[in-house]
Design a binder for these strands. Sequence first.
DNA 1: CGACTTTGACCCGCGC
DNA 2: GCGCGGGTCAAAGTCG
Length: 513
Amino acid sequence: MDNPHPRELTFLPSRDVKEVDFFSSSSSTAADQDHTTHHHASSFPHHPVNTGLNLTCETTGISTSKGSPNADNTESERKMVEGELRRLQEENRKLRSMVDQIAKSYSQLQAQLFMALQKQKLTHHHQNTGVKSNGMISGEKAVEGDGRAKVEMKNNDASVSGDEKREREVSASNNNGNNAEEVMSKKHDENDDDNEGDEDGLTKLHLGKQVAASATEEDVLERSSSQSWGSCKTPNLEEPKLPSSDLPFRKARVSVRARSEAPLISDGCQWRKYGQKMAKGNPSPRAYYRCTMAAGCPVRKQVQRCAEDSTVLITTYEGNHNHPLPPAATAMANTTSAAAAMLLSGSTSSSSKETLATSAAGGYFSSSMPYTSMATLSASAPFPTITLDLTHNHHNALQLHRVVPPPGVTFPLPLHAVTPPHQLIAGHPFLISNHQKLMPPLVHRQQPQPSNNSPSMVETVSAAIASDPNFTAAVAAALSSIIGSSSNGGSAISVSPNGSPQLPQSCTTYSTN
DNA sequence: CGACTTTGACCCGCGC
DNA sequence: GCGCGGGTCAAAGTCG
Ligand SMILES: [Zn+2]
């Protein structure tokens, strides 16, 4: 059991947490201010500011500074106060809207959770919980070692037409150091030997192309699957039916967009470049890297600059590490897995509905990752991809984009950047349930605070995601994190479910700034 | 000398 | 079947 995921929250402990506690700090201050203001500004039309937040003002009276004896001063003071008051009201308003959204989201999540649990009970009772260590993801076929346990997950969307069910097998490789290697490294071989004979049907995934989830994903999947997965289904919307059932599995990828002059982002891992190609439509070449921290580590990443904005570096991660990672790298890994999980969950159910997924995701993310700019999930591309867009960092309003970038999607992830250990993040798993329709666009709050750091968001998100996919836990975590964190920049997540059906693997892409 | 990068060739899936 | 594009392999070169 060494799952990398759980591993310490080392999310790049380099920075401090940037999350702002919305409620704790901001709100409190606001409240205080309110009080003060109220007193003074009696004349104001001031609406009853009710922050839904329950910021109670009464007692506090900040009578402190007031008492100015001079009328003149009083006058000027009053103006100032009024101005402040307005500002505070504005802030309160924003806060309130946030709260409302959170509340809604919470409700929805609860409902979903509930449904999911029920489904699980009914539907799949049997999922084994595989334990997994780190997972590796194999691309399309999972190679199975003898010792692996396989778990099958089936998702059926209850809501959806039943055909959507997918079956996945996850092979949990407990002892597979090798497996991973094999899998990743040689795809080619697989074909040939894919069957070493031993396989029972399992070996070949049921699907022609379905892929077994890699171990890594397994983690995610496993956990999530047990909970979140099954559940994911959304309430029902019809799904577009996708050919998905047939679609081959693909790996989930996580990409990060960030502005960076440097050609590479340091994510705590060691990478070896194994190829470079000129991508069509993009003047800058795309570089392919493989993790060299461990022999068989299947993790790969692609790095390329944005065609439109060469300052934006897009890093896409795929796969999970099969070895322990340094703290700095942990975040990434977690992110990846988390992202994968998200994709999976999201894709599963909704592959069709962006909205829902989107909204849900958006909600969570945004809440959980205040700093991130936006996250996008898309199943459409060749592989399901989550993109974190850190290029807009500061002040962004939360937006949901349903962007479906042709190529992939983006979603804010935690960068490897070094950050301080976040408790939250690591601790709380954050999942996006696929289909929840939370509020569509989250609130946009733009807070004056510049301070955000994009990284924190990312971290948060990734951490959360990565951490455990338990739905419940995730939800709880998400909520808590949301509540706990203040949002600064906005983040948006969008999901575009196009049709890709299943996501076997996970990739994470980062773009550095 | 080992690890990494460079770079053209090769493989493979996909659309026409 | 062919061409295209994405991704990977692996020999050769580079660096410390
Ligand atoms: Zn690795």
